[in-house]
Write a protein that binds this DNA or RNA. Structure first.
Lengths: 212, 212
DNA sequence: ACCAGGTACTAAGGAATGTTGGTACTTTTT
DNA sequence: AAAAAGTACCAACATTCCTTAGTACCTGGT
């Protein structure tokens, strides 16, 4: 059986001792290095030759320096697999962790899942917990939405809104004090941007995706 | 015990029958409606009064109309919980499903997880499978990266690259044939955009995040 | 004291995008 | 047939962002 080398970054001595003992009980896992601070982690990481890193998020009280530390380690060794370990379940912390390049995010309360998560990380498999996945989904939707907002220009949005209210081009002409020609041009660009054939479809799709 | 009403969209009659029977065996689940095509789904959905929708992705051969159908149902009832059901595990299909508004994505081969996934969806809890979560993570990182690329202008990127190579402002002045004043201005904007204090930090961070 | 780096403005010229409207024509709906 | 919607171009003007460079000043290290 192949041995997986684990590097542990955790400031709390009690947790650290507990985790090392717990992980070393697994036949295929070996803790090859430890650190309690960002500086120690950066100093010892490369020499340890670890396959997987366990990184506590709060290396100091009320601080997220574990995320910074993760980024530094990835800068040193882009292929390293980092699992963030924390008691927090705030969405933004989860998102930032993945954003920093972590491959997984596990609550300390479910530390029993750690050995399998470490094995999965080492084999480049996914073991992301549903809670973390939900945070990723939320952020993914937020990012997509932000992108969507930029698709249409202000004038295009306004026209699409009026179409959605059932107004004809002649009525829009009167509302906005612009000629029907301009409206047709705006609509034509909207249809191309959105990949639909009629302004009704565009308006329906836009209201669905909250583009205005 | 509260009963959860399920609406099933599946074209294959064998799978459909099998799923209905399987789900109805669960005491708290009731299949209150079925459809085999996009049109049927849209027609019958509202009348069924479902809490959760199970949606097959391939309603016709070689087609992803299940995703379109999901979007239509969400347009009809924005709060509906849709679980995509499929034999495919392609990343882009998973991402498109979540993008359309689905709350979960489950492989037909793990249909045994369906009852719990339905309960989780109904309670607005996350039950996203690690495989789907990995696809979300990849897409999230791709989107973040795309955003990051847009942060710096071409001139700003070029200057940061040279700083990263260790060049001084005087050396950059000679390389790019622009005055030191322009360089200072670029750097000043870079520092503000990236929220760092020195150009060294900016260059390090930029190379980490592959901004140039 | 000098030099490199940094701050805080201002400003001119260019490129890219957005807005408006034009001509001319086709398709769809009523 | 008439009205409404849409296609395919072109063009002037505005706005915004990018690039360049200016003046004037501050800070930290040698």
């Amino acid at each position: 059986m192949e041995t997986i080398n684990v590097f542990l970054v955790e400031d709390d001595p009690v947790w650290r001792k507990g985790l090392v003992d717990y992980l070393n009980k697994e036949a295929d896992l070996t803790v090859v290095g430890e650190a309690g601070t960002k500086a120690e982690a950066i100093e010892r990481f490369l020499a340890a030759g670890a396959d997987v890193v366990l990184m506590d998020i709060n290396l100091t009280e009320n601080n997220l320096d574990g995320i910074e530390t993760a980024m530094e380690l990835i800068a040193l060794e882009p292929d390293c697999k980092i699992i963030m370990l924390t008691s927090l379940t705030a969405d933004d912390v989860i998102v930032e962790s993945f954003s920093a390049g972590a491959v997984n995010y596990i609550s300390k309360s479910s530390f029993k899942e750690l050995p399998d998560a470490i094995r999965a990380a080492h084999n480049s498999q996914s073991a992301i917990h549903p809670t973390a996945a939900a945070a990723l989904r939320n952020e993914f939707l937020r990012l997509k939405n932000e992108e969507n907002q930029k698709l249409l220009s202000p004038a295009e949005k306004e026209i699409l809104q009026l179409i959605h209210q059932g107004k004809t081009q002649t009525q829009i002409e009167q509302s906005l004090h612009i000629t029907k020609r301009t409206i047709k041009n705006h609509i034509n660009r909207i249809l191309k941007k959105m990949g639909v054939k009629t302004s009704k479809e565009a308006a329906a799709k836009a209201s669905q995706k909250k583009l205005f």
